[in-house]
Computed example of a mutant assay.
Amino acid sequence: MKSANRLLRTLKVIPLILLGGCSALQVVNSVSKIYTAEVKENIVFGTHPKLKYDLYLPDTANQEFDTTPVIVFFYGGSWNRGDKSEYEFVGRRLASMGYITAVPNYRLYPEVKYPDFLEDGAQSIANLRTELAKSEYQQYKPATQYILMGHSAGAYNAAMLALDPRWLTTVGVDHTASVKGLIGLAGAYNIYPIKDTDVQPVFNHPDYPPQSQPIDYTKRANAPTLLLAPETDTLVSIERNTETLHKALDAAGNDSTTQTIEGTDHVTLIGTLSPLLFFKGSTAKPIEEFIRKLHSTTIPETASSNGS
């Protein structure tokens, strides 16, 4: 779940020494500019100074579907660290694939604990619905049902918002009218008891809050789900998290797909969206196939800007 820090170390396989004083993430994001996108930075959605999101827009409206798919991507970092600016490579890659992509910040421990970051995520979605209803975006015909996506701890955030309707309902957003699907990468869906000392205080270890894991909401889920897992993961157990959530969703009759991405670990799984890790297996391909399936299926869209 310590995504950004471990990505720095992982990318040492690339001869960064030739690139001067740039950090690995600076290099990743710099190279990602080969993926063209219009970027609107620091759209405010709350009073806290961290509560902003960046919006990545494709060059043109998606021509394959009646509406342009919208993705909200939540980054990982054990709920202790991370910033939207570190994930420009994700926003640009998804926008280049034809999807409107928002990358929001959320407040972190020790300033906040569960469930504050979920409330932040819900608020970012509420604000995005209002933002995309503006006339300046109508050329894209943005979808009004969003695909929630995340990596590691961010996949937990995305899954909770997609599977548990109370968070969006609290901010006045109709859950069913607003969530089209869930994409989780190396997600933390079933982490109790928590062994990671960085994460323990986030969930008040050992007095864990009840009904606070995505695995608790599989029976009431209404969002088709794609769960991507690395080939190996020493940080977040694939069996305990990805496989367990997939089996529970599937047993309850939900549309759930899981796939292992060859040659990846916990960090390089999200790193494959960068052009620097072209030699790894592709996460872009299953994401594209999943979104094509979602948007090729007739699901009523609402014209409301706030889902209510």
Rank of each mutant, 00 (worst) to 15 (best):
E86Y: 11
A153E: 03
P214F: 08
N241F: 15
K219L: 15
K12T: 06
P69M: 01
A223H: 04
T169N: 12
A177L: 03
D265Y: 06
W79D: 00
S3P: 08
P230T: 07
F278D: 06
V103Q: 01
G263M: 02
E136T: 14
S30W: 14
K2Q: 11
E243M: 11
V267W: 08
Q139S: 15
L51Q: 15
Y114C: 00
S78H: 01
T10A: 06
K33W: 06
R92S: 09
P110I: 07
E301Q: 10
H246L: 10
S296D: 13
S135K: 13
G172D: 05
S274I: 06
I194S: 02
D66T: 12
E64L: 05
G150D: 12
D59V: 10
T60K: 14
S296V: 03
A155S: 15
A133Y: 09
N29K: 08
K12Y: 02
R92H: 03
L294T: 11
T242Y: 07
Q63E: 13
Y146W: 06
D66I: 04
T244F: 11
S212L: 09
D265H: 14
L19N: 04
G20A: 11
Q138N: 03
S124Q: 08
S30P: 06
T130Y: 12
G21D: 14
K2I: 12
S152H: 11
S212K: 01
H266E: 01
M160Q: 14
D198W: 14
C22G: 05
T68D: 07
P224K: 09
S256N: 02
I194L: 12
D207E: 12
A61E: 10
A248H: 12
I238N: 05
I299E: 02
D59S: 13
Q211K: 15
L235T: 09
N222C: 10
L276R: 03
T257W: 14
N127W: 12
A122Y: 02
R166M: 15
P275K: 03
P104A: 01
S152C: 07
L185N: 01
E301S: 09
T218K: 06
D265I: 00
P193Q: 09
I183F: 04
L94Q: 04
P210G: 06
N29F: 08
